[in-house]
């Protein structure tokens, strides 16, 4: 029942996105623009500032994630469909999980564009350790989206939601962003510092367990007025 409802919500979000590609296109465009602008500032004569690539990759993911979270829940605000989801005879955390999976997939799709672009513009060897990079991106995205989905759902009825979301989200997700940046920097060293990257991956895994568990636990009381 739990996972059936989560998948149902995910499929519904996917079906809506397929009608317009609105959130994917705006999120991807924003992330790509962000990286392009940073490349003008941090790349001089073909040489990027040290460690800039890792920071810019994760800043772009965080900013694009905020945009995607806002737009995704704006859809649920219109017509108050989030209330309809909460009226379903299902555990309410299943609704949260479905929304979280949708945001994570959207960010993964954005990262498919972002990572090669950062590698190219910043001359960064991001693909030298693809499995470790994949683990960093996957765990970092899940951790960031786990907190973001909870806050975006909480703020869906707030008039100041567009301002409040980043104000609440960025301080809480700083550990995830730092772990992502430091782990990616370790991979970009010559030679890549695999033990350090693995340590940050383990920390990201820990953050994910904490954030997802807390979010699943608090979703129902936070969403009931």
């Amino acid at each position: 029942m739990f996972f059936r409802i989560a998948l149902l919500v995910l499929k519904k979000d996917f079906a809506i996105e397929l009608k317009s590609y609105e959130i994917l296109s705006t999120t991807a465009f924003f992330a790509v623009s962000c990286v392009a602008i940073f490349s003008f500032a941090f790349v001089k004569e073909g040489q990027a500032v040290e460690d800039a690539a890792a920071g810019i990759l994760w800043i772009a993911i965080a900013f694009a994630g905020t945009l995607a979270l806002g737009r995704t829940f704006e859809r649920e605000r219109y017509g108050e469909t989030l209330k309809a989801l909460l009226l379903a005879p299902a555990p309410r955390p299943a609704i949260y999980l479905g929304k979280l999976l949708g945001i994570v997939m959207l960010l993964f799709a954005t990262e498919v564009l972002l990572v090669p672009m950062v590698a190219f513009l910043f001359n960064a060897p991001l693909f030298d350790r693809p499995v470790l990079l994949l683990a960093l991106l996957a765990l970092g995205t899940i951790g960031y989206a786990a907190v973001g989905t909870l806050f975006a759902a909480m703020l869906v009825r707030a008039r100041t939601r567009d301002v409040m979301l980043p104000i609440l989200l960025y301080p809480i997700t700083i550990p995830v962003i730092i772990a992502g940046v430091r782990g990616t920097s370790a991979l970009l060293q010559s030679p890549p510092d695999e033990p350090m990257a693995t340590l940050w991956i383990a920390l990201l895994g820990f953050f994910d367990v904490v954030f997802v568990t807390l979010s699943l636990w608090t979703f129902e009381p936070l969403m009931t007025e």
Binding site: I16, E80, T81, K83, L87, P89
Partner: peptide, 17 residues
């Protein structure tokens, strides 16, 4: 909730679908 149906001011429909 399985035995409750609600029609509110807002219609709880997805306009894109």
């Amino acid at each position: 909730r399985a035995r409750i149906g609600v029609l509110a001011h807002e219609l709880h429909l997805y306009p894109e679908l």
